[in-house]
């Protein structure tokens, strides 16, 4: 209990709220790195996953699809910390090399969920869409994506949380952000700073969870939610 009280006291100290090591600054850094990695992830993974799911014919598409699904399982086995350290040792410290592992770890969940989401759209729904005269891109945008949206969002949420969490660890190799409190606290054995940082990171993860829950409510058609619960 003492530790929690100490952490709360840590939040109350005025030096936590200003300057380069203040909470607002660290939070902004964290959001900036995470947002950047997330944006890069989406730009890479979303179009690829959606397009691969949409193109169903041919052996090449099937092979690529298999590769996509395996990549998610593979990515799960990658040790985050090892990857971060390796990237920095091989490519030098700095934001660029640090972002690479963040993106590498976040791409698979987005890719796989977008891919399987579109792929799992029932064939007769797609057949009806084409049969009524939708073009390929109309089928994708008006039918496949709205129906696949729950899975697409799930993949994005997993990736976002993964990124926030990995960005915390990245403080170990010199990245700014909330992870600094944890890593520096551990190094200096200032456990109130460590616990305070951890609480901030947990709050951020909760916030992301909340944002995606809201996004789901707003953007997924009630009809899709109904048919999923049947």
């Amino acid at each position: 209990m003492n530790a929690i009280l100490n952490a709360l006291r840590w939040f109350g100290q005025s030096e936590q709220w200003s300057g380069p090591d203040g909470i607002p600054q660290r939070l902004l850094e964290h959001l900036w790195y995470s947002g950047l990695a997330f944006a890069i992830t989406l730009v890479i993974a979303l179009p690829l996953g959606l397009a691969l799911g949409h193109v169903r014919r041919g052996r090449a598409a099937a092979a690529l699809g298999f590769a996509v699904v395996s990549s998610a399982n593979g990515a799960r086995a990658l040790p985050t910390l090892g990857l971060l350290i390796l990237a920095v040792l091989l490519a030098g410290s700095g934001v660029g090399p640090t972002l690479v592992p963040l993106v590498v770890l976040a791409v698979p969940p987005v890719l796989v969920n977008a891919y399987t989401g579109v792929r799992q759209v029932e064939p007769q729904i797609r057949d009806a869409a084409e049969g009524m005269g939708m073009t390929g891109s109309q089928v994708l945008w008006r039918v496949e994506i709205p129906v696949a949206l729950p899975l697409v969002l799930l993949g994005m949420r997993t990736a976002a949380i993964q990124i926030v969490s990995t960005a915390t660890i990245a403080a170990y190799v010199g990245l700014g952000g909330l992870g600094r409190y944890i890593i520096d606290g551990l190094k200096r054995q200032e456990y109130d700073s460590t616990a305070g940082g951890a609480i901030l990171v947990i709050a951020l993860a909760f916030l992301i969870q909340l944002i995606f829950t809201g996004l789901h409510r707003l953007s997924v058609s009630p009809g899709v939610r109904l048919s999923a619960s049947h």
Partner: peptide, 9 residues
């Protein structure tokens, strides 16, 4: 078509 193929969304 069979099973209507209605758009669930």
């Amino acid at each position: 078509i069979q099973q209507a193929g209605l758009f669930p969304h």
